[in-house]
Amino acid sequence: MSDHHALPHPGQELSVGEVAERSGVPVSALHFYEREGLIQSRRTPGNQRRFRREVLRRLSFIRIAQRVGIPLAEIRSALDSLPDGRTPTRADWARLSEQWRTELDDRIHRLQQLRDDFTGCIGCGCLSIDRCGLVNPHDRLGEDGPGPRRLVG
């Protein structure tokens, strides 16, 4: 009895359906990632996509980075920085995640500030920053121009 979930023998390529099943990434997303240059396949004489097994680890890298909020353009740039288009190693992930850590820390800070300011502004019920004597007396922030002023950029 064969196990259809077992990984193929070394060197064997995977169809797009097999990659989708094993990675949990929908076929439509695989096509999108390929169009965006994040993954690569080759075409068979019958014009079917075939992926190397390493694409599974590459997809994990992409999905984890996306989950923490790294934009696809930055993910692509990081993958393009790897020699010979190789699949990211643990060392690659450690280096890249350290680079992204500062950006993520900044994003967390902005979200916390947004959460705290949002609660404060909406809590009074006025929904008008220019009439808020607590947060913005005399509309001081309006003098700086339009848009939200308390959020750091």
Rank of each mutant, 00 (worst) to 15 (best):
1 M>D: 06
2 S>H: 06
2 S>Y: 10
5 H>A: 12
6 A>I: 08
7 L>Q: 08
9 H>L: 11
11 G>D: 05
11 G>N: 12
11 G>T: 04
12 Q>N: 10
12 Q>I: 00
13 E>K: 15
13 E>W: 08
14 L>D: 07
14 L>S: 06
16 V>L: 11
17 G>T: 04
20 A>T: 01
21 E>I: 00
21 E>W: 01
22 R>G: 02
22 R>P: 01
25 V>Q: 03
26 P>R: 11
29 A>N: 12
30 L>I: 10
32 F>W: 08
32 F>M: 06
32 F>S: 00
32 F>P: 00
33 Y>R: 04
33 Y>L: 12
36 E>P: 02
39 I>Q: 03
40 Q>L: 00
44 T>D: 04
45 P>T: 11
47 N>R: 11
48 Q>N: 13
48 Q>F: 11
49 R>G: 00
49 R>Q: 03
50 R>S: 01
53 R>E: 15
54 E>Y: 00
54 E>M: 01
54 E>G: 12
55 V>N: 03
56 L>W: 01
57 R>K: 03
59 L>F: 03
59 L>P: 05
60 S>R: 13
60 S>G: 13
62 I>F: 06
63 R>V: 12
68 V>Y: 14
68 V>P: 04
69 G>K: 07
69 G>A: 07
70 I>T: 13
72 L>V: 11
72 L>I: 12
73 A>V: 15
73 A>R: 13
74 E>L: 13
74 E>I: 02
75 I>N: 02
76 R>F: 03
77 S>D: 13
77 S>V: 00
78 A>F: 01
81 S>I: 01
84 D>P: 00
86 R>M: 02
86 R>F: 01
88 P>W: 11
88 P>R: 05
89 T>S: 15
91 A>K: 13
94 A>W: 07
95 R>D: 06
96 L>T: 07
98 E>H: 09
98 E>V: 02
100 W>T: 01
101 R>D: 15
102 T>E: 14
106 D>K: 04
107 R>L: 08
107 R>D: 09
108 I>V: 15
108 I>N: 00
110 R>M: 14
110 R>P: 10
112 Q>C: 13
113 Q>M: 12
116 D>I: 02
117 D>W: 10
117 D>N: 15
118 F>K: 02
118 F>N: 05
119 T>D: 15
120 G>P: 00
120 G>H: 15
122 I>Q: 10
123 G>M: 05
123 G>L: 01
124 C>L: 11
125 G>Q: 02
125 G>E: 09
125 G>P: 07
126 C>L: 15
127 L>G: 02
128 S>N: 15
128 S>P: 00
129 I>F: 09
130 D>N: 05
132 C>Q: 11
133 G>K: 10
133 G>Q: 14
133 G>A: 13
134 L>G: 13
135 V>C: 15
135 V>N: 11
137 P>W: 09
138 H>R: 12
139 D>K: 06
139 D>H: 09
140 R>Y: 08
141 L>G: 01
142 G>A: 08
143 E>A: 12
143 E>D: 04
144 D>V: 03
144 D>Q: 12
150 R>G: 12
151 L>Q: 15
152 V>R: 14
152 V>I: 06
153 G>R: 15
153 G>Y: 05
